[in-house]
Design a protein around this nucleic acid. Structure first.
Length: 403
DNA sequence: TCTGGGGTCCTAGGACCC
DNA sequence: TCTGGGGTCCTAGGACCC
């Protein structure tokens, strides 16, 4: 049986979802004017998370600094993102997709794959995909692209064709015609660096990659990566639609300063903040971490990082923070201005077994109590925020549909 | 008035063990 | 005296994704 995979991708997700909210509240539709969603619009270090189609037409792109976009178009509409709202929109989106097939893999907040192989019957996949796309638009108020193909790679590539509100197919038989003429950068997993490398050797299109042998490709990129690129450029991908949500392998948090900072007190404050956030997350998810890493980013964007293994896994903020502080002194001279500081944990386990130590820090009980209070405060703040949202009409409320 | 934040995976070299 | 080779773990760094 021919596999039939859909990839569903919300068009300019954060922008569309923000527009739905504003329209619901009686405001103008920001999708119709040059507009962007960003972090704090007053922070010049903010970058654009999503841009409307009119904004894209005048050269404004996601990941562009807000300040640069304002130079292109000074009367740009800038809206601050609302993560809680996006999560709700995402849930509505996933629910509709899941009603078409339970074999669903959420790829990000605004993208998913569904395996339609056993659902399509004698129907035309394009008709079914169109129905799904239209149902989302009618019920939820935003548009999606649906890519239809015989594997995940092809479905994802297809959903990236012309936007918005479109269905495209990319069957294996269509690969030479629809995929090979595209630039190498359009192939999934080919980023800026690989593009530069490939172009240096005259490899410009996906078809050029497909024509190379794995051996030739291996001389340009790493071996595993060469295998992957070779398969993908030929339209092959046998990875299944994974319905299990994988467990987290690492957690991290970072802070970029409004101005580059060199006062150790300021740096330590930021380190303290990110340590609290990361440690809270691992406790929330019932993890302990054996590796702590930290990094600093300088004004020129170069990064210095350190990581260290703990003698036993921990979820105690103070232990994580102390390791990070120690590494900071190894990695930073205490003088050079820093742009960003970050902290991460990895080598996670759910194991709660604790080795008895004769040298256990006598302050440990105090540390744990501090963490318990911190967690309780965060939980209370979270509840308050969610409560505020209960009063808002969710986008998938029936009374918003069919109009 | 340039460039956020949160992830995953891979590679390479050194330490250490058998 | 000479000096192989496999395996694993660790750290650093870099690529990619949204």
């Amino acid at each position: 049986m021919r596999r039939v995979i859909f990839h569903i991708d919300v068009n300019s997700a954060f922008l569309s979802w923000t527009a739905v909210k504003i329209v619901m509240e009686g405001g103008a539709d920001i999708r119709l004017v040059p507009s962007v969603v960003s972090g704090d619009p007053n922070d010049r270090r903010s970058i654009i998370a999503a841009a409307s189609i009119p904004a894209k037409k005048i050269g404004i792109r996601a990941a562009m600094p807000v300040s640069k976009a304002l130079r292109i178009y000074p009367s740009l509409t800038i809206v601050r993102g609302d993560w809680e709202w996006y999560k709700r929109c995402s849930e509505g989106f996933i629910a509709v997709c899941r009603s078409y097939s339970p074999v669903l893999q959420q790829f990000s907040i605004d993208e998913c794959f569904i395996d339609m192989t056993c659902r399509i019957g004698g129907k035309d996949p394009v008709e079914v995909a169109t129905q799904l796309k239209d149902e989302i638009r009618t019920k939820l108020g935003f548009t999606v692209n649906v890519g239809v193909g015989s594997n995940k790679l092809l479905a994802k590539m297809a959903s990236d064709f012309e936007k918005p509100d479109k269905v495209h197919t990319l069957w294996e038989s269509e690969v030479p015609e629809k995929m090979w003429p595209l630039g190498v950068r359009d192939l999934l997993w080919v980023g800026k660096k690989t593009e530069e490398r490939l172009v240096t050797y005259g490899i410009r299109t996906i078809g050029d990659i497909a024509a190379l042998s794995v051996g030739q490709l291996s001389r340009l990129v790493g071996h595993k990566y060469a295998l992957q690129l070779h398969e993908n450029a030929n339209g092959r991908d046998d990875s299944p639609v994974e319905t299990e949500v994988p467990e987290a392998k690492s957690y991290s948090a970072e802070r970029t300063f409004a101005k580059d900072l060199s006062d150790p007190k300021d740096i330590d404050k930021a380190l303290f903040n990110v340590a609290c956030i990361v440690a809270h997350r691992i406790r929330r998810d019932d993890f302990r971490a054996s590796t702590v890493s930290m990094f600093v980013k300088y004004m020129d964007f170069s990064v210095a990082q350190k990581q260290t293994s703990l003698s036993q896994p921990t979820d105690v903020t103070a232990i994580i923070l102390n390791e990070a502080r120690r590494m900071l002194t190894e990695v930073w001279d205490g003088v050079t201005p820093l742009r960003q500081v970050g902290l991460g944990v990895s080598k996670l386990t759910h194991e709660t077994f604790e080795q008895m130590s004769l040298f256990e820090d006598p302050k440990m009980e105090y540390y744990r109590e501090w963490d318990r209070r911190y967690d309780a405060d965060r939980a209370a703040a979270e509840d308050a925020r969610l409560l505020a949202y209960e009063r808002k009409t969710p986008p998938n409320d029936e009374k918003n549909g069919d109009n």
